[in-house]
């Protein structure tokens, strides 16, 4: 269950939803000890995944450059005029 690769493939929305589920489960208080440890570890991983996705908030604005045939040839920074 606590598979790092699996967590890192999750979208933000899915990771957040699962984190919410885990918190609700633990708050219910009926989870056996072993399972609660596994849940906690996964919760931490999900939180890290969400943080990473949120931290990746670099604004990059580029313009597609077009060739003579109208096909994109590359990108260049948009000179914000």
């Amino acid at each position: 269950m606590t598979d790092a690769a699996d967590v890192n493939a999750l979208s933000f929305e899915k990771a957040l939803a699962e984190l919410e589920t885990i918190v609700a489960k633990l708050e219910g208080g009926n989870v056996p000890l072993e399972e609660s440890i596994a849940l906690y570890a996964r919760g931490e991983a999900l939180k890290a995944r969400c943080d990473a996705l949120l931290k990746d908030a670099e604004a990059r604005v580029e313009k597609i450059t077009l060739g003579a045939d109208g096909r994109p040839t590359g990108i260049q920074p948009l000179d914000g005029e």
């Binding site: 984190l19 919410e20 918190v23 708050e27 000890l33 609660s36 906690y40 969400c50 943080d51």
Partner: peptide, 15 residues
Amino acid sequence: VAGLHARLRACFARG
């Protein structure tokens, strides 16, 4: 996320 994380730690610590 921070809120959820805090709850996660708190309830685990409480448990």
